[in-house]
Design a binder for these strands. Structure first.
Lengths: 117, 117
DNA sequence: CAATCATATACCGATATCGGAATATGTCAA
DNA sequence: TTGACATATTCCGATATCGGTATATGATTG
């Protein structure tokens, strides 16, 4: 066995920085491949390959327009990532840090009061 | 060149489902390796290896306790993932879907009015 | 129809991974 | 000190990747 395919998951697909860049560019709206090639400074075949991966995980959709292909973002594919990482937000949010402090204070108080646990 | 190292990034580290599971378990608090081994149903060496990766990207910290090692979550390492994916939230949120519809309506209107762009 | 433009695919070599198995390191207990 | 326990490291083979280069496919223009 080796590492999971890049097309296995949105997680795997998006682990590659270039692919994140591509998605970031597509936030601005539909773009033909050549636009992306120009903006990324990458060779055209590499861009097409990255787009294929993004297509396979559903993060982008394509539309034909004459001899060019217009790629468009489909952000829903990223929702699982958002949902997962969202659970960890409290670990760096100051607001929650304060809440944690309060809760710890309460625990301490209960321990001082003695009894079980 | 090959795929980026799993230790290159939080993105790469977390692309592996087992490592996400480990982090999920550590949300419940500090745990020794053997606890994780039991809960994951994985072989001990694999768990140690996954933990190493998570350590190298700063997602967990270790503390020695006799002959065992207690691993603890350090969620701050996941913030870049959260920050990145957060930008895409509007793409699946219904509230923002409605906003998009409104904006598209406005665009349409301007196009109908003609003129440049 | 030929030439050109836009994009996708195929092939290559190098590399880092993953799980499995064996083993090393280090601590505690009798 | 010997043995049991807890964890980390090393070696293995298989595999999927990435960038580069060459080429295929397909649409448009002259």
């Amino acid at each position: 066995m080796a590492r999971a395919a890049t097309t296995a998951d949105a997680f795997n697909a998006v682990a590659e920085p270039r692919r994140r860049q591509i998605l970031d560019l597509l936030v601005g709206g539909e773009r033909p491949v050549n636009d992306l090639v120009a903006q990324l400074g990458l060779a055209q075949p590499q861009v097409s390959k990255h787009l294929r991966v993004l297509r396979e995980v559903g993060a982008v959709d394509v539309r034909e327009d004459g001899r060019r292909r217009l790629y468009r973002l489909n952000g829903k594919a990223l929702k699982p990532i958002h949902d997962w990482v969202h659970e960890y937000e409290r670990l760096w949010s100051e607001r929650f840090d304060e809440l944690d402090a309060v809760l710890k204070g309460l625990e301490q108080k209960e321990e001082d009061d003695g009894s079980d646990e």
